[in-house]
Design a binder for these strands. Sequence first.
DNA 1: GTGAAAGCGCTAACAG
DNA 2: CTGTTAGCGCTTTCAC
Lengths: 339, 339
Amino acid sequence: MARAGGVTIRDVAKRAGVSIAAVSMALNGTGTLSAATRTRVREVADEMEYQADALARGLRRSSVGAIGLVIRSLDLLGDYAPAGVDVFARFIGDLSSQAMARGLSVMLVPDLTRRPAPPLALGLDGYVVDLPTVDDPVVRLLERRGIPYVTLGRDPDRPGFTDWASEDGPAITRRVLDHLAARGARCIALVRGTVPNAWNLDAEAAYRSWSASRGAAPIVREVAEGDGEAGGRSMAHRLADEGAPDAVLCLTGRHAAGMLAGLAERGIRVPHDAMIATASDSEHARHSRPAISAVELDTAATSAALLDLLQARIDGRPSVAPVLTGARFHPRGSTRRRD
Amino acid sequence: MARAGGVTIRDVAKRAGVSIAAVSMALNGTGTLSAATRTRVREVADEMEYQADALARGLRRSSVGAIGLVIRSLDLLGDYAPAGVDVFARFIGDLSSQAMARGLSVMLVPDLTRRPAPPLALGLDGYVVDLPTVDDPVVRLLERRGIPYVTLGRDPDRPGFTDWASEDGPAITRRVLDHLAARGARCIALVRGTVPNAWNLDAEAAYRSWSASRGAAPIVREVAEGDGEAGGRSMAHRLADEGAPDAVLCLTGRHAAGMLAGLAERGIRVPHDAMIATASDSEHARHSRPAISAVELDTAATSAALLDLLQARIDGRPSVAPVLTGARFHPRGSTRRRD
DNA sequence: GTGAAAGCGCTAACAG
DNA sequence: CTGTTAGCGCTTTCAC
């Protein structure tokens, strides 16, 4: 290590009575070395607790064994009531533990585009970018610098780009809509976020085509992700003013919770007068009264898929196809209605 | 950059018509250079979008501009219902944005002690370690390798160690206990986690001394952090079997939520028959019925304090004293009782 | 005030 | 099969 530990490859070489090159080869399993030397060197290295300096190694190999994670919502996490804290926290946790199991470190990069770039940010082996937006500056930067990356959710700008994984948004949307319809909903509104990412765009598209196929007039409303519960509440009032639908699908858990509260304020009972469901489960959804029917995203599977894809890209293996991960729907009180 | 971008200090030097040393000096504001050369070089570097390779720089300076964050609970985040997801997610978000504002990158290190060490992990400039436990292997490793670190919460093993920041646990505990007593509680139980960290230990100590000063017999129960809501529920049943106290302070939000549910199952009404409060706010607490009175931790202030302390240690500035950050108590329905 | 040169710890190509 | 050597991109003396 540059500073910590202090035992370098040279020390090991001296102690083992071989050249530093031999040590490097022995430890990396490269080159041509006698099995005897190899084990001997390994023993000595172990004994000395030698750990190759990732910096020096990275400088040589131009691969540091670390990837970046761009979570935009991270900036929001400082707020008291951030959007979707639940699912993102789980995603961060899953991804970093799984990456570590593969020998990769994870660096958190809230904003890759700032100048000067965060140290190491441009030297990382690759990136996982969450939900690229239309005309995404982070994606543009990675693209320009030729840094491998994969995205959580498809890139709305790049239909041909296949290095992404995601829950199957459209399928989730249809699943919930079918559920609502089965419970007797006749007029279902969709409340999406304002950010132009695949999550919002694809759900809206699925909703519109589902509506069209049923001959229903679509009602789509947008609430800013950052407005959280309060945003959901005011949207509830707006919908009530307009003559409330008898079911609302909120893509965001917080919006759903706010919607529930807002409808209650207007004397609209859930699920009796109107049903509510959300496409991303959260504690909000689980602990509201009534609890809100929600889709539970499989962040562990998505993390694994993203790491697979990223490793393939880093190794230069050809990209195959995006990975759609599963999601389970949990019907709860907010859609429990005897019709 | 080693790989990405490709424009090196040599390219800038050539373009600016100076030596590479001059470029380094100009950009770092070191050495003796004419102001003219300095600006000229800077302009060229900007124009070429030159970014110094953090790896190479780190190799030389043995300081990479990145710190590690050891969040043990990260391993738990993969579970569907992890403990304290809320407060940790906010902490991670706060810390990483604030670190970036200071020009530091943050690397997530779930387990620093595993062999081989995660790449870069031992080459980082310093570490923030959350809640060290008694005989903490991570702290031991950092100590042994001489890597600067600060901790969130004091180190139970090192009374003399002052490089830590935290909410004032004992003060929080007393605050809540006073509140419960003021609302008429006569027999208050404390439910803590099992991990031997300052959070649990100090709260228990504060609780015991508070009880002693009032001549009350302390009731302390332990529930594993990872058991979450279910753990709180079974503890509720156990307490009910033993003859329930008329108030319970759960250090963890999830335990509190489980406690609420468990007591309800036994026909014990909250807040009428028993009150519940928790020392760490979460969505659980806010959205239970009734909502649970809770202490909201100031993760932003704590993050800032930790980064200050860490930077001081990295720069070799002397350590002064630990920083205690504020916390607000939110009385809610679970302790709203007219006595 | 400026440039040449050494070297951080490592890997990979080469000669022995 | 092994050891020597040349750098990766940068910072930092040290001559000029």
